[in-house]
């Protein structure tokens, strides 16, 4: 799994790429929580996620809960087909705030 962080005025975008699985999800968790710590809002760009498992979903859930507890926006952006499939199976597609693109998400604030 690779990642890239882009800071905007109103939000930080973390782009995850590759497989978010049991091996990499502890890293993903730390990246997301660290970014959330300093950013006014967090957007997770998931367009490059080729695979995500339950542990990766768990990292997203934890970040979502932390953001909500601190009054920070947590948004999933451009979710790839495999990742969306898992979110749907987990019935989380209705829990997360999901947007088609980073621009949409920033504009929707």
């Amino acid at each position: 799994m690779e990642h890239q962080i882009t800071r905007h005025d109103t939000a930080t975008v973390v782009a995850l790429r590759g497989d978010v699985d049991l091996e990499s999800s502890p890293r993903a968790r730390k990246i997301l929580l660290d970014a959330l710590d300093t950013a006014p809002a967090l957007l997770v760009d998931m367009s490059g996620v080729s695979y995500i498992d339950s542990s990766g979903i768990a990292s997203l859930v934890e970040s979502f809960q932390t953001g909500r507890a601190n009054g920070k926006r947590f948004v999933l952006v451009a979710v790839s087909e495999p990742a969306l499939r898992v979110l749907q199976l987990a019935r989380l597609d209705r829990v997360f705030d999901i947007h088609g693109s980073v621009d949409d998400a920033l504009a929707a604030d």
Binding site: D53, S54, S55, I57, A58, V61, E62, Q65, V86, L89, A90, R91, V95
Partner: peptide, 18 residues
């Protein structure tokens, strides 16, 4: 129960879903 957002048990749910 999926209303419970704790991560554990999600994997087994996914297995049974597919």
């Amino acid at each position: 129960d999926l209303d419970d957002l704790r991560p554990g048990g999600l994997g087994t749910h996914l297995i049974r879903e597919v």
